[in-house]
Structures are given as structure tokens and as C-alpha cells.
């Protein structure tokens, strides 16, 4: 469904991603793991078109994404969440989700300014949709809370909810459980599995938390210094000596430190 073909990204002299190729099959949960600074988020930023790779192509359903601007990507069916949560902090949870519906709402200024019945109807439908997503995330009682008042865990949920509300084909999740406690992590991993099984989304996941990755992933790509060093099923990757040397050693200390 999503194919990276020999992608290279450079910032000045620094190569953040080096000839990276991988393919995300439809309907799977595909994870990218790797130590800090391996270039994982850069991969997402290429798909979101915030960065333009110096070489290579990114095919989505056979179409090259490079020719699109960042705001056009969602119309192709790709939504994303952010590592450090990029919510609209002064809005309520409801308003954040409604803003996520932007691509599907009519934006003609004249009916809007006059608040015609068609606009009111559209707004009501949008609210119903937002409530559906909040139901799924179990945050309905927070609908009218300002997101700046929420804990980080709930903010992450809202961030994911905002990506889900447009019903994308592919959803990019950037470290969805970073900074969460084990119970919250458990909830998110259930949610990710439901995204695949019940809603039929394809999920591309970046994550540090190995337990989550091993539990939910169908396939894993391991990156280090901008390069792919291994790929396969979670079990295969876990036993790959290259990975153990480059990455899992670090993770073990990481886990031990927790």
C-alpha cells in the first residue's frame, strides 16, 4: 500500500535517512523501530511532506506522494499523530476532533456566515461523528474540556482521535505510548489492534516501547543511523544478531533503567 523507494533525506551535510526502502502491506500493523536519532520521525515527515527527500520516491496506492503539499496528504487517505502531541491547546476535545474533520466539511463562506440550515445540519453530523470517535477512545466525558487541562496520556488519545476521525486508509502513529504508564500503554495497544481489526486501517507505527511493538506488529523494520539494518516479523527481528548488537542492547538498558 505504501512503498518507500530508495529514499534519502539530507539536512545540510547530515544524512538523516539513507537509501531507505520498505513496503507497508494493506491491512497490517507495520512498525519502525530504532535508537534515538535513527531517522524514524524523518520518515513520517517525508510522508507528511514536511520534508522533501533528495532522492527516491514514496508510492501510496501506486501514486507518488512527492508531488503533493502537506495539506493534500490527508485527502489521499493518510492521517497522522505526533510524537509530542500537536493539539490545538485552547480548543476543547470536541473542537479538536471537529477540526480534524476539516477535509470533509464544506467551507463555503456564504452559507457559513449566514449560518444556513445546511451548515447547521453539517455541524450536527460532525458532532455525532466526533462523539463516535470519543466513544471508541472512552473519553466522551471529556468532550468539553480544554485539551491544555488534560494529562499527557489523554492528550495523546485526542491526538490519535483527531487523526482517526476522517477515516483514513493509513494512519501514522509516532510513539503513541511515549510517556505513558503501563495501564495507559495497555489501553493504547488494544486501541491499535482495534484500528486494524475492526476499522480496517493500515497502521504505520514508530515506537520505543518494545513490548508494544512485539505485541501488535505484523512486520517490523529496524533503522539505525538512517539505514535499514533489519526487517521481518517481530520474532525474526528480535533474534537478528545485527539488531541485538545495534539496538536491543540499548533497549535492555533502557528498560532496566525504567
Amino acid at each position: 500500500m505504501l512503498t518507500f523507494n530508495d529514499i534519502t533525506v539530507q539536512f545540510g551535510g547530515l544524512t538523516a535517512v539513507n537509501s531507505l526502502s520498505f513496503e507497508v502491506p494493506k491491512g497490517q500493523i507495520y512498525s519502525i523501530i530504532g535508537p534515538n536519532g535513527a531517522g524514524k520521525t524523518t520518515v513520517f515527515n517525508c510522508i507528511s511532506r514536511f520534508y522533501t527527500p533528495s532522492k527516491g520516491s514514496i508510492l501510496f496506492n501506486g501514486e507518488d506522494l512527492i508531488k503533493y503539499k502537506p495539506h493534500q496528504i490527508i485527502n489521499k487517505g493518510i492521517a497522522r499523530s505526533f510524537q509530542n502531541v500537536e493539539l490545538f491547546t485552547k480548543m476543547t476535545v470536541m473542537e479538536n476532533l471537529l477540526t480534524g474533520l476539516h477535509p470533509l466539511l464544506k467551507k463555503n463562506i456564504f452559507p457559513i456566515a449566514l449560518n444556513l440550515p445546511s451548515v447547521k445540519r453539517m455541524e450536527k453530523d460532525a458532532r455525532d461523528q466526533a462523539y463516535e470517535v470519543m466513544d471508541l477512545l472512552n473519553i466522551t466525558d471529556l468532550a468539553n474540556e480544554k485539551v491544555s487541562n488534560l494529562s499527557f496520556g489523554f492528550q495523546k488519545m485526542v491526538d490519535i482521535g483527531r487523526a482517526m476521525i476522517v477515516n483514513p486508509q493509513l494512519i501514522l502513529l509516532d510513539e503513541p505510548v511515549a510517556g505513558m504508564n503501563p495501564i495507559e500503554t495497555e489501553k493504547i495497544s488494544e486501541l491499535i489492534l482495534r484500528l486494524k481489526n475492526e476499522l480496517g486501517y493500515t497502521v504505520l507505527l514508530i515506537e520505543h516501547d518494545m513490548s508494544l511493538v512485539m505485541k501488535v506488529s505484523d512486520a517490523v523494520t529496524v533503522m539505525n543511523f538512517g539505514k535499514k539494518i533489519s526487517e521481518g516479523t517481530p520474532a525474526e527481528v528480535q533474534n537478528d544478531p545485527v539488531v541485538i548488537e545495534a539496538y536491543l542492547g540499548e533497549v535492555e538498558t533502557h528498560v532496566a533503567a525504567k
Partner: peptide, 22 residues
């Protein structure tokens, strides 16, 4: 309206606004 929300979205986070298609 959705228009006003798009304005606020741009004010609060241009990155997220673009990612949701604004």
C-alpha cells in the same frame, strides 16, 4: 464554524493544521 476552527488551528499549530488538511 469549520472556517473559524481552521483559523484557530493555524494559530495553535501550523504543523498539525497542515497534517489535517488545512
Amino acid at each position: 464554524s469549520s472556517l473559524g476552527r481552521a483559523f484557530i488551528a493555524i494559530r495553535d499549530s501550523e504543523v498539525a493544521a497542515q497534517a489535517i488538511g488545512i
